[in-house]
Simulated scan of single mutants.
Amino acid sequence: MKKTALICGITGQDGAYLAKFLLGMGYEVWGTSRDPQGVNLQNLDSLGIRNSVRILSLVPTDFRSVFIAIRNSHPDEIYYLAGQSSVSLSFEQPAETMQSTVVGVLNVLEACRLVDYPIRLYHAGSSECFGDTQGQRADEHTPFRPNSPYAVAKASAHWLLDNYRNAYKIHACTGILFNHESPLRPTRFVTKKIIGTAKRIAAGSDETLLLGRLDIQRDWGWAPEYVEAMWRILQQDTAQDFVIATGVTHSLEQFVATAFDYFGLDWKRHVRQSPELLRPTDPLYIGGNPEKAERILGWKAKYQMTEVIAAMAQA
């Protein structure tokens, strides 16, 4: 029988790519928005799937709203990708970040517990939960040491889900995703900011790119590949969590240099560090070990940082 998926956060980067992937797998796809009439569906438009998904109202912090959305869509699988997703913005909006992430996940878990049929739930975790991994590649057993309100929220949601899985036998899983990029990234994300600025400078702009720390090291992958990992996680007979990463880490300086070099530019002539863009806390190194995902899910990242930059630059 045809499966039904409910994607909370369908208008974002991951939600849009996931919707396209699931449609290709033959799913009926529902997506949620606080305001279905006024929602921006630009990402769905850009992927050519706007008319292939059904949008319904869901306010993550309102349990009644969550329960009704699940009752009306009757999903086999729920992908909770909603919530405030910017680390920098979480320092300015800590309450909104905590509520949309933690309370949202709690309400979905409660709804899954109370409905009269089994639902499989995927929760979008984050590598930020690990904090600074101090040169080591984090796996599913690495302790969390969150360094931002965003990371604290994601870690809290992770343990809530773990508790419900153990207490109520809900088939609920967390994908601990490391950084994954695409042309659908909002401009507030540093990768989109870097590539967009380099592209404009190459076209004749005399602007300067302002950045914070350049020595931070992250694992950057390709978002369309990562949404397939989300789906594979939910197809396992046993509910469990997975680290999803490329396994290769680069500094932000390397990312900047590679992006500017793609356009034939010397980044040092166009980039300046700004104290105003430094975060109160910022882990120096966050690396991931995706060995379990490769072994159990059969998933392995094909795009590394250089390929990610090229694909975003060409878009």
Rank of each mutant, 00 (worst) to 15 (best):
T249H: 03
L284Q: 15
R137G: 08
T246E: 10
N40Y: 02
R295M: 13
S126K: 02
T197C: 11
A95C: 01
L160Q: 14
Q273N: 12
V59S: 11
D45S: 12
Q273D: 13
F21S: 13
P283I: 09
I195N: 03
V108F: 03
D62V: 01
A138F: 10
R64W: 02
H171Y: 09
D35M: 09
A82H: 05
N40T: 07
A124L: 11
L41M: 13
G31C: 14
L41S: 01
G83K: 00
P36C: 09
Q134P: 00
I119W: 03
A202I: 02
L161E: 15
A82D: 03
P280R: 09
D45R: 10
W220F: 15
M98H: 06
R71F: 00
S73W: 03
Y27W: 09
Q235R: 12
T11Q: 07
Q84R: 02
G48L: 05
F67R: 14
S52W: 00
K302Q: 15
W299F: 15
T246V: 04
V105N: 11
S90G: 07
L278I: 14
E307C: 02
I49C: 04
R71S: 07
P224C: 07
S46W: 12
E276D: 15
R269C: 10
K302S: 14
L81D: 07
I244L: 13
L47S: 06
D14S: 12
G298E: 09
C8V: 11
Q304N: 11
E294I: 11
S86V: 01
A5W: 00
P143L: 08
F91A: 05
P146D: 09
D62Y: 02
W231F: 14
A95L: 12
S88P: 03
C129R: 12
R54D: 01
Q273M: 15
R185G: 00
P283R: 05
L277F: 10
H270T: 06
A202V: 03
G48R: 06
F63N: 00
T246N: 06
A124I: 00
Q42C: 06
K302E: 15
V152N: 07
P283Q: 04
T281D: 14
T281H: 14
S156V: 06
G196A: 04
V190F: 13
A155E: 14
P60V: 06
S65L: 04
R218H: 06
A151F: 08
I7M: 04
A157Y: 08
F63D: 00
A310K: 12
K169N: 15
L177K: 09
T246H: 07
S88N: 11
R120E: 09
K302G: 07
Q99K: 10
W267H: 13
S182I: 03
W267F: 14
L284E: 15
A16M: 05
G196R: 04
L47G: 07
R64Q: 13
P118V: 04
I55S: 02
A153T: 04
M305S: 03
P149Q: 02
S274V: 09
R232H: 07
S86L: 03
V271M: 03
I170K: 06
Q13R: 04
S90V: 04
L234Q: 11
F91D: 06
V103F: 01
R71N: 01
P283Y: 06
N51W: 00
G212C: 12
A293Q: 10
W231H: 15
Y226P: 00
